[in-house]
Design a protein around this nucleic acid. Structure first.
Lengths: 195, 195
DNA sequence: TTCGAAATCTAACGAACGTTCGACCGACTC
DNA sequence: GAGTCGGTCGAACGTTCGTTAGATTTCGAA
């Protein structure tokens, strides 16, 4: 039994889309990757765009929910931001294929599935707002010396979302080490955590 | 006479590639954008991939050269890094179409024009090395308190290269203001400029 | 005014694309 | 053993793709 064929298709398509881009991958190539004929894919997804939709929305929602569910524990903002960023880096590496698709093929959904596009934008905005809120409140409480929480939030997200562009496990060591360095860079330096 | 038709094609193709991606744009669509038939494009470029090649290599080389030519003037490293980052942000905004193509369609060149791909990688690496060198030497001279110049360099480049993903002039104000905020964030905070 | 090259055109090629359709096959129920 | 149904198949559809070939136009130089 293992995993269902539908999930097998989703994973293979995510991998191919991430490597070559949505338009560079044909339905027959996806089908080949799971050992099936092209027409069989239409038993699980009504169209190629719906396949992209499933990959992007599912993976983005999974990320946001896994990240926002346990924010409460720590009392101080510095620890909360640090944990959030550490988990972000690790999660993005473990799910790098799906997340790459969610980041790169947005305009394709915007064209052919506007409601899926706005849903993704809303999800992403929710996460961004949460990070910006933590930074702003942490600064108001005197934990951070950050000057512009909004721009700083965007800068941070740009940093962590591009790690997958250069990170190679064999060359750069465990992803947890990178996550540690980035977390410190963010909390102690960019946010100016008041010792 | 104005600009030559060849450059007109390059600019139109860069815009379309940036908006929709290499594979989503057909030769006929590029031709339409300049008011010409599809087959006429082959008078200037032998293939679609060569068109991409020209856009990516030309724009990347233009950026690197414009950035590396006047690094000498200032004596202290902090000012040099600050100017380099400020110019980087402004340049990336002014040439955002071409630079987006250079960043996003790398694997397409890798597939069909390996030598162009390695050329781009070398150019980019040159720039990255120069930034890392400034940071390392600045730290050795006691100007910075930065701990890991290599990772910090990658984090910085990830930050500045993703500004175009969210920046909208009407909503976010002059690009020079953003460039100022980012430059300060980089030099004073991430590199820990010793006041 | 004539000539030749540069630039653009029309028309078509074979291939690949996303998608549809109807048949088939195996496993399950009655 | 007959019937049902989810899953897969082969084959084809209309379209678009990148590209080519050859005719035609444009236009400055001789």
């Amino acid at each position: 039994m293992s995993i269902s064929r539908r999930e097998e298709v989703l994973h293979a398509a995510a991998e191919l889309f991430a490597e070559q881009g949505f338009h560079a991958v044909g339905m027959r190539a996806i089908a080949d990757a799971v050992g099936v004929r092209g027409s069989s894919l239409y038993h699980y997804f009504p169209s190629k765009v719906d396949l992209l939709h499933a990959i992007a929305v599912d993976s983005t929602r999974a990320f946001i929910e896994s990240q926002l569910e346990d924010l409460n524990p720590s009392p101080d903002y510095a620890s909360r931001v640090r944990k959030m960023m550490f988990d972000h880096v690790v999660y993005f590496h473990e799910h790098r294929m799906e997340e790459a698709v969610g980041l790169r093929e947005l305009q394709e959904l915007r064209k052919h599935k506007p409601e899926a596009y706005t849903e993704l934008q809303t999800l992403r905005r929710t996460y961004q707002n949460e990070l910006e809120r933590l930074i702003t409140e942490g600064r108001d409480k005197g934990e951070f010396s950050c000057e512009d929480p909004h721009i700083t939030t965007l800068a941070i997200l740009g940093m962590v979302n591009t790690i997958n562009d250069w990170y190679r496990p064999h060359r750069d060591g465990p992803i947890e080490d990178i996550a540690d360095i980035y977390s410190s860079l963010i909390v102690e330096r960019m946010l100016g955590k008041t010792a």
